[in-house]
Design a protein around this nucleic acid. Structure first.
Length: 111
DNA sequence: CCACTGACGAGTG
DNA sequence: GCACTCGCCAGTG
């Protein structure tokens, strides 16, 4: 074993959870964090998403914020527009205000 | 080491 | 429901 591995490698765990979100469903950053064994660290999930390559197989677009919205990027609206497009292609409907009804589309891993 | 930032979120008013 | 504060912590300068 490597005794020096204390500086977290949480990204793989986060990506594993995101990869498990079914098509047409969404999960919140906080939900992903909790499922990855990192309760209260929703922010790190966002950080992990930001670190993904453009051609990643990870379905990053299925992760939205706790209000059911696509989180605004500092970099610009481009990624957000793509995210919404990808979700709509999977059948996820957006209401006025760019809101998704979480009670309807949220992924429930228990089922 | 310190200050600041940021794909977040619960709590408060 | 909105605006704000505070906690969270990796990355950057």
């Amino acid at each position: 074993m490597k005794p020096e591995s204390h500086h977290s490698t949480a990204y793989p765990r986060i990506y594993a959870v995101v990869a498990a979100i079914p098509r047409g469903k969404v999960a919140t950053y906080g939900q992903v964090a909790e499922l990855a064994g990192l309760p209260g660290r929703a922010r790190q999930v966002g950080y992990a998403m930001h670190a993904l390559d453009a051609d990643t197989p990870i379905p990053w677009h299925r992760v939205v914020n706790a209000r059911g919205e696509i989180s605004p990027r500092t970099a610009g609206p481009e990624a957000g527009t793509l995210q919404r497009q990808l979700l709509e292609t999977e059948g996820v409907r957006f209401g006025v205000g760019g809101r998704i009804q979480l009670d309807r589309y949220r992924w429930n891993p228990a089922t």
